[in-house]
């Protein structure tokens, strides 16, 4: 079966730093695919290559068979690729509602002329139609009470949720989530995990997620890939990845290797960035 997303031999270098070295993998349609790995392993770099922030030094990326290696970042929402950021990247001075409405940008047709004439050009009607869609997302993510709040004033956990809402508003078929649960407490993590499963199962989105919380990753992922020092060291279903000796070594350092029991979820390094 052809992959929805295919990463073929991607390397990425920043001067002397090798962020990624010949990474290849594929994400299947409808899959919930997770990438794990220690800090600095190159996880975010992969997402940046897929969303167009970085151009790979070598290798190619294909989305539904189309070569997207050199495509502008702003052309990717049309193809159906959306993402969230590890470090919050909301529009701080805009309301939650407007933040999510920005996600509709590529779906809206009104422009600076028709938008300025609002009542005369049907822009108002169009904006309201999209407002309905946005309200559905707000309901789904339980953001009703903060929809008018300025995004920059919200607590961390809520901001992460607004970011997810904004990415959902793009109506992506492939959604890339960079550490959606970082810095959250247990309950918030549980909610977020639920939302992600719903994205995948109810909304039918293919999900690619980076996450440090091994418990969640092993629970909800269909397949997992492990990166270490920019290289892929394992890929497969959660249980086999967890049992992989390379993975244990990468996570716990060679000295501690003997102590690892496959059922014992290793304490993931907390993300600092």
């Amino acid at each position: 079966m052809a992959h929805t997303l295919e990463v073929r031999g991607v390397s990425l270098r920043f001067g002397g730093v090798r962020a990624l070295t010949e990474v290849s993998f594929g994400v299947n349609e409808g899959e919930l695919f997770s990438i794990i790995g220690p800090n600095g392993a190159g996880k975010t770099s992969i997402v940046n290559c897929i969303s167009g922030r970085y151009k790979p030094t070598e290798g190619k990326l294909f989305y539904r068979g189309k070569d997207i290696t050199g495509l502008n970042p702003n052309a990717r929402p049309q193809l159906g690729i959306g993402r969230t950021f590890q470090n919050l990247a909301l529009f701080h001075h805009m309301s939650v509602l407007d933040n999510i409405m920005v996600g509709r940008h590529h779906l809206l047709k009104n422009n600076f002329i028709t938008g300025s004439l609002y009542w005369l050009t049907g822009a108002r009607r169009e904006e309201l139609e999209h407002r309905h869609k946005v309200e559905e997302i707000i309901d789904f993510l339980d953001l009703q009470s903060v929809r008018k709040a300025t995004a920059g004033t919200l607590p961390y956990g809520l901001r992460k949720r607004v970011e997810l809402a904004r990415a959902m508003a793009l109506e992506p078929q492939l959604i890339l989530l960079d550490e959606p649960m970082a810095g959250m407490n247990f309950e918030e993590k549980e909610d977020m995990a639920r939302y992600i499963v719903d994205l995948n199962e109810e909304f039918g989105m293919t999900v690619m997620m980076i996450e440090h919380d091994m418990g969640v990753v092993m629970d909800i992922s269909h397949r997992v890939m492990v990166l270490d020092f920019g290289r892929k060291i394992a890929e497969g279903d959660p249980a086999s990845v967890l049992a992989d000796p390379h993975v244990k070594r990468a996570y716990l350092g060679e000295e501690d290797e003997v102590l690892v029991d496959p059922d014992d979820k290793p304490a993931a390094p907390e993300c600092a960035a």
Partner: peptide, 9 residues
């Protein structure tokens, strides 16, 4: 109007 429609946002 501009600011509350697509391009203004």
């Amino acid at each position: 109007n501009l600011i509350r429609s697509r391009d203004g946002r």
